[in-house]
Design a protein around this nucleic acid. Structure first.
Lengths: 158, 158
DNA sequence: TCCTACCTTGTAATGATTACAATATAACAA
DNA sequence: TTGTTATATTGTAATCATTACAAGGTAGGA
């Protein structure tokens, strides 16, 4: 379940960050995307509405959201760009090394796993990433690159 | 449990890679390190014995080991460099965003989690990374940066 | 010993991310 | 509303890990 635009904005606001049109737009785009976007892809999408937007602002806003834990970073997916995760509910991520898309896999075990982490580290856990790498069914054709039906296919577009 | 130098070399050999002094040295260093080294740190260590070693060779060898699954990549630990994992037994990694060291946490739940991944993706899982980010006990002093005693402290030097 | 495909090396290129300085503006108070 | 100030945004320039490339070297089989 991704966060709403308002949840992201409220998180920034209550952490002392100012409301700006750029941040509002970035949070809106984040909330509407069910994939695992990169800074560049956010930039391009927001720029369609806010032509003056700077890429630096996107990086800075994502960094702020990261710092307050509103989003997390999944690292790269075989490409060399950082993918972000808006859905911070515990789950497994499956990254395809061919098409560089990441999709979500619901997991029972992850709750026990996070409990283990909490017990070992205490309250200081800032964020986590659980990513497994593989190849989708169709190596040759990224457009058909997809996982087994048990995987949450709605989010296979990042 | 880290791999022995021979295990790494044999893995390369049986995958069709040639034995070279450089690869032997790199595998040896990898097997002796219980932290989560970066390409640069491997380079510096091997270079002490093999002054002609090139950084490119280190990257190339690590890439070969990655491709055959003998090691895995954990991504970065708050710094901007990739950390590698020689111990491919399923476990949780804890990365400190202050001192950039990663240590291992034994986990029961991870076995169930990997089973979930296998069921969803089939045999095509290439590698995984389970990393949680936090701060060690002593933020201000990296030398004392350490986790709760339940965490495997032997490997806290990467 | 010879051959050839594969390796290593050094250097140059790449490209995502960050640093920086000048300008603009959100938020608060009067 | 207006003024003030700390914070945000922008554009450009710098950073730096990683990769590409080409020339020379070598492992391993014939």
């Amino acid at each position: 379940m991704a966060k709403s635009s308002n949840e992201l904005l409220e998180a920034l606001k209550s952490a002392g960050f100012r409301m700006t049109p750029q941040r509002t737009a970035i949070c809106y785009v984040l909330s509407q995307r069910f994939d695992h976007p990169t800074a560049q892809s956010i930039y391009e999408q927001v720029r369609a509405e806010h032509p003056s937007l700077s890429l630096t602002t996107v990086y800075q806003t994502l960094d702020s959201l990261l710092k307050i834990g509103a989003i997390t970073s999944l690292g790269n997916a075989g490409d060399d760009t950082i993918h972000f995760e808006v859905n911070t509910d515990p789950h497994i991520n499956l990254a395809c090394l061919t098409c560089h898309r990441i999709c979500d896999l619901r997991s029972e075990a992850i709750h026990a796993l996070e409990k283990e982490v909490q017990q070992a580290v205490g309250s200081k856990v800032l964020s986590g990433r659980v990513v497994y790498y593989s190849e989708c069914l169709e190596k040759s054709n990224p457009l058909e690159c997809t996982y087994h039906p048990s995987v949450n296919q709605e989010v296979v577009h990042g």
